[in-house]
């Protein structure tokens, strides 16, 4: 049911862990299925210099977390903010329909980490500009 790329990211996840004294941390939980994802970032010159994740969830949740960290490393905050849930799923070669919601977790946790960074840096005003689509409560679509 999973693509080889999903299985690769699941079996050998990239960037697992937690950045100590991170510049921004985003955590999101899925209330229905009870999964939790936490992404921490370090930011230099408005670029994501380092990123790590921790995930409690299924194979798709782990793989999307791993993939999103790969996708954003070195990106500007604005570029990172544009990464959508769909883009993460596509980068993995697709997810089974009943696992699409897991990909929401990864991009949303990332966006929350960026928001956290901006807030801490006293740049709340930029949050709406950079993040058009901050997660509004977690929607859970059943297959």
């Amino acid at each position: 049911m999973y693509t080889d790329l999903v299985m690769d990211h699941f079996s050998n996840p990239r960037n697992v862990g937690e950045i100590e004294d991170a510049d921004g941390v985003g955590q999101i939980g899925n209330p229905v299925c009870g999964d939790v994802m936490r992404i921490s970032i370090d930011v230099e010159d408005d670029r994501i210099a380092d990123v790590k994740f921790k995930t409690f969830g299924c194979g798709a949740a782990v793989a999307t977390s791993s993939m999103v960290t790969e996708m954003v490393k070195g990106k500007t905050l604005a570029e990172a903010a544009e990464i959508s849930n769909k883009a993460v799923a596509e980068a993995l070669g697709g997810l089974p329909p009943n696992k699409m919601h897991c990909s929401n977790l990864a991009a949303d946790a990332l966006h929350l980490a960026i928001q956290d960074y901006l807030t801490r840096a006293g740049r709340e005003a930029e949050v709406p500009l950079i993040l058009a689509a901050l997660p509004k409560g977690h929607e859970h679509s059943s297959p």
């Binding site: 299924c58 194979g59 059943s142």
Partner: peptide
């Protein structure tokens, strides 16, 4: 028997 493994997303 986890939710994620069930397909129904219910444990």
């Amino acid at each position: 028997g986890s939710a994620c493994a069930s397909g129904s997303l219910e444990p």
